[in-house]
């Protein structure tokens, strides 16, 4: 295990804005002109280096369809970061992002989760100005970036910025690679993790 922590990243937004493509571009560097619509949720993993520390990213890709809201929202638990994607060629996808912000507020469990707004598909004819995207991100106090999964523009940077911000947020993440959010049932193991962490475990009330 050569990474210091595992971070859980959610990618959410309307259907067809390019969430899966962004993740594919980031994790493999590939681009498919067409990509089957995600069913439910999908998962990708990548180890990334930020500020000289290696972190493992567990990236949860979600389906954007209304019918999947219940399923996808149950995966928001314990996420460290969220990427909210809209399509710059589709104004409705930005307008709808408001609903996703609310969704995130209701179902995310960490109170200082870091969010990044991504305006995707800047290779296409633009129907949403950069200022509109900025305004949205500013209103919700989120990071903002524009990208193209097709040309890879902004993709790497988007994840770097997000992870950097998460690492800089005190109390949001823990050291010791835990197996995503699954707690190992063996209490010895749990104890050892506690001891190796930054928390002082010696105090017993």
């Amino acid at each position: 295990m050569d990474y210091v922590t595992t971070l859980k990243i959610l990618v959410i937004g309307e259907s067809g804005v390019g969430k899966s493509s962004i993740i594919l571009a980031f994790t493999t560097g590939d681009y498919n002109t067409a990509f089957p619509a995600t069913i439910g949720v999908d998962y990708k993993m990548k180890v990334m280096e930020v500020n000289g520390v290696k972190v493992k990213l567990g990236i949860w890709d979600t389906a954007g369809q209304e019918r999947y809201r219940t399923l996808t929202s149950s995966f928001y638990r314990d996420a460290h970061g969220a990427i909210l994607v809209y399509d710059v060629s589709e104004p409705k996808s930005l307008a709808k992002l408001q609903e996703w912000v609310e969704e995130l507020q209701v179902y995310s469990t960490k109170k200082n989760i870091v969010s990044l707004v991504v305006g995707n598909k800047i290779d296409k004819p633009r129907a949403v100005t950069r200022a509109q995207g900025q305004e949205f991100a500013q209103k919700h106090r989120m990071l903002f970036i524009e990208s193209s999964a097709k040309t890879k523009e902004g993709i790497e940077l988007a994840f770097e910025e997000l992870v950097q911000k998460i690492i800089e947020t005190p109390g949001l993440w823990e050291t010791g690679p835990t197996n995503s959010n699954i707690r190992i049932g063996d209490s010895e193991e749990a104890r050892r993790q506690q001891q190796s962490s930054c928390y002082d475990y010696t105090c017993t009330i």
Partner: peptide, 16 residues
Amino acid sequence: GAAGSDTRRVLTAAAR
């Protein structure tokens, strides 16, 4: 208090 995904750690920290 320390938030986290490890339930026991959160409980111990909260008790402290």
